[in-house]
Amino acid sequence: MEYTNPKIPEGINTTTEHPLKEFFILTAGVLALIAIVVFMLGLAAQTIARKIPFQMELELAKNYQVEPSSNPEIQKYLQKLADRLATAQGLSKTLKTDSPVTVHFYEDNIINAFATLGGNIIFYRGMLEKLPSENALALVMSHEIAHIKLRHPIMALGRGVVIGLAVSAITGASGQGLTDQILGDAGLLTMLKFGRDQEQEADKTGLAAVAKIYGHINGTTDLFEMFNELPGGNQQLPQFLSSHPQNENRIKFIRQYSIDNNLATRGKILPMPKLIRKYLESTSTPTPAPAPKEKIKN
C-alpha cells in the first residue's frame, strides 16, 4: 500500500473573500437593524403610553413629588399665564387640580424649563432672566403646555423603559464590552429622534396658542436667537446627536409654520411684566453676566 499526503488546494475551509467586505456589510447591517428595532419598539411603546389615562399618570406622578416653589408671587403670575395658554390649547381641568397644568418656579440660575409627569411644569429663574419679552415667555410656557397636552412626558417614560430594555438586551448580544457599548449608543441615538419630533410638535401647538392669545407671533423666535448667543450656543452638536432640533432649524420651522397657517408675524411686542423685572433686578448677583454662563457649560 502507498501512503502519501498530496497537496490539498487552499480556500476549502477558509474563504478568499476580503475581510473588510464582511466588516462593512456587518457593521451597516447591525446598525440598521438596531435603528429599526429601537425605532419600532419606541413607536409601539409611546403609542401604548399615550393611551394611559391622565388620571393614572397623576397617580404615577405622586411618586415624583416636587418641592414647593420658592417665590409664590412669580409662581402665581406664571400659573395665571399657563392657565390662559392651556385654555387656548383646549386643555380642560382635571379632577385633581383646578388647572390642567401646575407650574413650579425655582430660583435657580439654570437656563431651563421643562414639562414632566402629572402635568407639572418646572420653570427656573435662569430661563426667566434670559427671556426678552412677555411674548417669548409665552412661547416657552405654551411649548411646555403643549408637551403636556400631547402627553409627551408619559410617552417618553414608556419609550425610555422599553428602549432601555432593548438596549440592555443588545448590549449582552455580542459579548464584547466595547462593541456592546457602541451598539447601545447607536440604539440611544435612534431614541433621540423621537425627542426631536416631539419638540417640533410642541413648537407647533405652542405657537398656535400664542397666536390665539396675542393675535400675532412677533417676538417669539427671539428666544432661539437668544439661545444662539449663549456661549457655545452656535457651536451645537450635529442634530442627530442632540435631543432637540438645532436652534436655526427651529426658527426656520416656526417661520415656515406661521406662513403656512397665516399667523400674523407683525404686532406689538409686550415687555416683561413689571413684577418680573423688579424681581429679577432685586435678586440679580453683582456679577450677573459670567456666573450663569458658566453654569450652562457645566
Binding site: 475551509n13 477558509t14 474563504t15 473573500e17 475581510p19 464582511e22 466588516f23 456587518l26 457593521t27 447591517g29 447591525v30 437593524l33 443588545i170 448580544a173 455580542s174 459579548g175 464584547q176 462593541t179 451598539l183
Partner: peptide
Amino acid sequence: FVASLRNIIGGRITSYE
C-alpha cells in the same frame, strides 16, 4: 469584532475559520 457582530445576526464566522 467581526465575529461579535456575527453573533447578533448569525451565520458563518469566516474570521475564525
